[in-house]
Design a protein around this nucleic acid. Structure first.
Length: 209
DNA sequence: AAAACGGGGCG
DNA sequence: CGCCCAGTTTT
């Protein structure tokens, strides 16, 4: 059961997103599971614009897992280098490619891969396939902990359960909207003056004392 | 110098 | 689960 505020937030967020969505190469339609995975794998702790600058080159040189397993690791490191974490990342990709000829399409199986946690697994499957999975990173946490402050749980496991209830049938649109909202409006220094949630956001209400 | 960050690893 | 680590960028 969703609260009134939760239902309104969900509806308002999707409406807002129709006019405010950000475009990135990995969001284009018909991206494969592998292509979306590569993007999400690089997007952890790395600004989207940096990933966007390297992404086409990476996919051209490494269009499949198989092409990674055949490449030498130095070349992999070179292509990833502008993003940082190049050693950890190429070692992980090498290991994944050496043990898989295709990526598993279930979150628990994706999470068995090195350097793939809950965020990358759920984001990959939701954005590539539309799977109805919640995504939870620090941006999403910041948004929910403001808007639903009193109800928002403390621990990561409880937060994941909480977000699971909110994800609608069009999970892809909802989760992308949540990320864009956290980046554009509800960032570390929030633009409450431009926000649709002022009538029910607990954080905004607390500012009005 | 210190905080932020998603994942890994430990007890 | 709670805590701390490695690696990197941002403040």
């Amino acid at each position: 059961m969703l609260s009134e505020a939760e239902r309104r937030f969900r509806t308002n967020l999707l409406e807002w997103w129709q006019e405010n969505r950000r475009e990135y190469p990995w969001r284009e339609s018909n991206r494969t599971l592998y292509e979306v995975f590569v993007a999400e794998f690089f997007l952890t702790q790395t600004p989207a614009d940096n990933v966007a600058a390297v992404y086409p080159r990476f996919l051209e040189r490494f269009p499949t897992l198989d092409s990674i397993s055949e490449a030498n690791e130095n070349e992999l490191v070179e292509v990833i280098e502008p993003l940082g974490f190049q050693n950890m990342r190429s070692a992980a990709l090498k290991q994944i490619a050496s043990t898989h000829d295709h990526l598993p399409a279930e979150p628990e199986l994706l999470m068995e891969l090195p350097r793939v946690g809950r965020y990358v697994a759920n984001a990959t499957l939701c954005f590539a396939r539309g799977d109805q999975l919640p995504i939870l990173d620090r941006n999403v946490e910041r948004v929910y902990s403001r808007v639903f402050r009193d109800a928002w749980p403390e621990t990561e496991a409880d937060q994941l359960s909480y977000t699971e209830r909110l994800v609608p049938g069009d999970a892809r649109a909802y989760n992308l909207a949540l990320l864009d909202f956290g980046a554009i409006v509800c960032g570390p220094d929030p633009l409450c003056g431009a926000c649709f949630a002022n009538e029910y956001c607990v954080y905004f209400q607390s500012l009005q004392e």
